[in-house]
Lab assay of single mutants.
Amino acid sequence: KHLIERYYHQLTEGCGNEACTNEFCASCPTFLRMDNNAAAIKALELYKINAKLCDPH
């Protein structure tokens, strides 16, 4: 559950690194913003595939 919350935060708030290159992070310049419901679904999907989590900045 904690990991899913981290994915959700990364998708909605980002890691804080303006030069982030993680396509699944709101801080990445090319990230496409999504609403909270879509972010919750995506967080579950990312958890299932063990996607990369950013280190908070």
Rank of each mutant, 00 (worst) to 15 (best):
Y47I: 07
E45C: 03
M34V: 11
A38H: 04
K48T: 06
C28M: 10
F24A: 10
R6K: 14
P56D: 11
C20G: 01
L44N: 13
P29K: 12
A43L: 01
C15W: 00
L11N: 01
L44H: 07
A26E: 03
C15G: 00
A19P: 08
A38M: 05
T12M: 14
P29Q: 07
A40F: 04
N22S: 11
L11S: 02
P56M: 07
N22H: 03
R6P: 13
E45D: 04
N50A: 13
A39T: 09
L44S: 14
P56H: 04
L53S: 07
L11M: 06
N36C: 12
C28V: 05
K42S: 05
G16C: 10
F31D: 02
C20W: 00
K1C: 03
D55M: 13
L32N: 15
M34I: 14
H57A: 12
E45I: 01
K48A: 05
E5K: 14
M34C: 11
F24Q: 13
A38G: 04
E18L: 09
N17Y: 10
N17S: 11
F31S: 15
T12L: 12
Y8G: 04
N50I: 03
L32R: 11
T21W: 07
E45M: 05
L53F: 10
L46A: 07
L53W: 05
A39N: 04
P56L: 14
Q10Y: 03
D55R: 06
H57P: 12
Q10A: 06
T30E: 09
Y47P: 10
Q10E: 01
Y8V: 12
T30L: 08
H9F: 06
D35T: 06
P56N: 07
T21E: 14
A43E: 00
E45T: 03
Y7R: 00
L11I: 05
Y8M: 14
F31L: 11
N50P: 10
C25H: 00
N36W: 04
L46T: 03
N50E: 10
G16K: 09
T30W: 12
E13D: 14
Y47V: 15
L3T: 14
T30G: 14
A51F: 09
L3I: 10
A40H: 15
P56E: 09
H57W: 03
A39V: 08
A38T: 08
D35R: 07
A19D: 14
N37W: 02
L46Y: 03
A39P: 04
G14K: 00
T21Q: 10
H2A: 10
D55G: 12
T21K: 15
H9C: 11
L53G: 04
G14N: 01
M34R: 07
L11Q: 02
S27C: 09
K48R: 08
G16T: 11
E18Y: 08
K42E: 07
E18S: 13
C25F: 01
A19M: 13
D55F: 09
K48L: 02
P29T: 05
Y7V: 02
T30N: 09
N37M: 05
A26N: 09
F31Q: 07
Q10P: 01
L53A: 07
N36G: 11
A39W: 02
N17P: 08
E23Y: 07
I4F: 05
C20E: 00
F31E: 06
K48I: 02
P56G: 14
R33V: 12
D35Y: 03
T30M: 05
C54F: 02
T30I: 10
E18I: 08
T21S: 10
A26L: 06
H2Y: 14
E13C: 09
F31V: 10
A19N: 12
N50Q: 07
G14P: 01
A19L: 10
N50W: 03
H9Y: 06
R6T: 12
N22Q: 03
E45S: 09
Y7N: 02
N50H: 10
S27I: 01
K48P: 04
A51R: 04
T12H: 05
F24D: 11
C28F: 11
Y47Q: 11
C20K: 00
I4W: 04
K42Q: 08
A40Q: 12
N36Q: 13
A40K: 11
E18R: 09
Q10R: 08
A26I: 07
F31N: 14
T21A: 14
I4V: 10
A38K: 10
N50Y: 12
N37S: 08
I41L: 08
M34N: 03
A40M: 13
I41K: 15
R33P: 12
M34A: 11
Y47D: 15
K1P: 01
N37Y: 03
K48E: 09
C15R: 00
G16N: 09
A51M: 04
L11D: 01
Q10L: 04
R33G: 13
L32T: 15
T12C: 09
S27R: 05
H57D: 09
I41N: 12
K48S: 05
N17K: 14
K42P: 01
S27W: 01
H57F: 15
F24V: 11
Y8C: 13
P29S: 08
G16D: 10
A40G: 14
N22W: 01
L11P: 01
C20P: 00
T12I: 09
E23Q: 12
Y8I: 13
D55K: 15
G14T: 01
Y47K: 14
C15I: 00
T12A: 06
I41P: 08
Y47W: 08
P29D: 03
I4L: 05
L44Q: 15
D55Y: 05
L32A: 13
I4A: 11
Q10G: 03
K1A: 01
E13R: 12
T21C: 12
N37E: 08
C28K: 10
T21D: 12
L53H: 04
N22Y: 03
I41S: 14
K42N: 04
F31H: 12
L53N: 02
A39M: 09
E23S: 13
G16P: 06
A51W: 11
